[in-house]
Design a protein around this nucleic acid. Structure first.
Lengths: 223, 223
DNA sequence: TAGGATTTGTGCGTATGTATT
DNA sequence: TAATACATACGCACAAATCCT
């Protein structure tokens, strides 16, 4: 990979992570000059990265105003979740890849961390571990376009889910996550990728149901 | 829409169409300077569009060499088709939208044009009509992320299909297309979006099968 | 091997658009 | 309403990379 591409990825990954972990919550204004100074480059490569984030819908750039981290409307959120559920299942049906031993080892390590997290819940550590687990799940399909699509959709809504997690029961979310990793591990150790995919689909569905419930409760309470 | 965005879309749509209709076949070098001169802008907005096309995988930009229209490997092609089939079905399951009368009218007009094309096959006109029909099909779902994903995948492989169409029986492709429009129209006139989605899935599948058959025949013949 | 031609990447000054006072 | 501040969009000149002779 060329040095240009390396730097682009470094910038892109850093900004995307900050957006999705709410270091930059929706509405945050990202100054080209400030980012350029922080990363030790000029405005040009920064603008290249912001353009990509804009094409992907994570930020919105407007002439004379700035580059602002976007929010996601509830209707759009529902659509993304509905699609993510279907894609999760497709991971088990289109070119499923049996997991390598190293992958199982990594997931076991995640389970340990998740269990510790469940005993001592913390939103940000939860979000990071969740993202890492999602990243592993993408390796279960050899269908590259499917993996790329699933990843894009995950990053489009991860930050919204994290933003609303205060309204949810964080410890309950952690419990559910631990259960998901356990069930996934059992499926993968049996070599059943389809079962792992169905577990994931079920948990995406439940996660969205809890999200909707929390939203409804917040609205009913006048929030 | 701002003037900046308007120009961006004009450039983007133009270049994407040229790539997908094989005005720029894979391997073509797109010069920033030349495009800037043709569209009466400087290199900057051209580079903005080429960056987007690069992120979407339609071109590949390399320092010191140029921006080159990509090709798609057979394995990748198979993955994209497999995914497109599934997404075609999802159009009927996720937020299906009953078609408006104007849409039916437009599809009837397409049927007429397709029938004329079947009597007098022509690859480029076929490709354009096919793209227009696909565009209409996206309106059948209210799930925006699904529609956007389906569109991206369509544009990733449309040019490959068109490039290989010489190896196929063009008149047979036209016949199949006429049949697809007829069946789709029947389904939509009955208000059955799911049936229309299944028709589409079936035809995407058959199209890929014919493509594989032609590839295999070409290889067997030593091509 | 060297050097010139060509092409993209970068840096920065300027133009343009927006919001606020 | 006008002026000012500030941010992005643009265009150009130069640097860096590649190819060909």
């Amino acid at each position: 990979m060329s040095e240009v591409e390396t730097r682009h990825h470094r910038l892109y990954d850093a900004l995307r992570a900050r957006i999705c972990l709410l270091d930059y919550p929706p509405g945050t204004k990202l100054g080209e000059e400030a980012l350029a100074a922080e990363f030790g480059v000029s405005r040009t490569p920064v603008r290249r990265v912001l353009a990509r984030l804009s094409d992907e819908g994570l930020v919105e750039t407007r002439h004379g105003i700035g580059t602002i981290v976007t929010d996601v409307e509830p209707a759009e959120l529902a659509h993304v979740y509905a699609l993510r559920m279907e894609l999760a299942e497709l991971v088990g049906r289109l070119s499923p890849c049996p997991p390598e031993p190293e992958m199982l080892e990594r997931i076991r390590a995640m389970l340990t961390r998740a269990e510790a997290l469940a005993r001592n819940p913390e939103a940000r550590a939860f979000a990071e571990l969740n993202a890492a687990f999602f990243d592993e799940s993408l390796a279960l399909t050899g269908n590259t376009p499917l993996a790329e699509t699933a990843e894009r959709l995950y990053f489009q809504t991860a930050r919204i889910w994290l933003a609303r997690i205060g309204a949810l029961d964080l410890s309950r979310e952690c419990e559910s996550f631990v259960a998901e990793i356990r069930e996934t591990l059992a499926a993968l150790e049996a070599g059943d990728v389809m079962a792992a995919a169905l577990v994931r689909r079920a948990h995406v569905s439940m996660s969205f149901t809890r999200l909707k419930g929390a939203e409804g409760a917040a609205e009913a309470a006048g929030g």
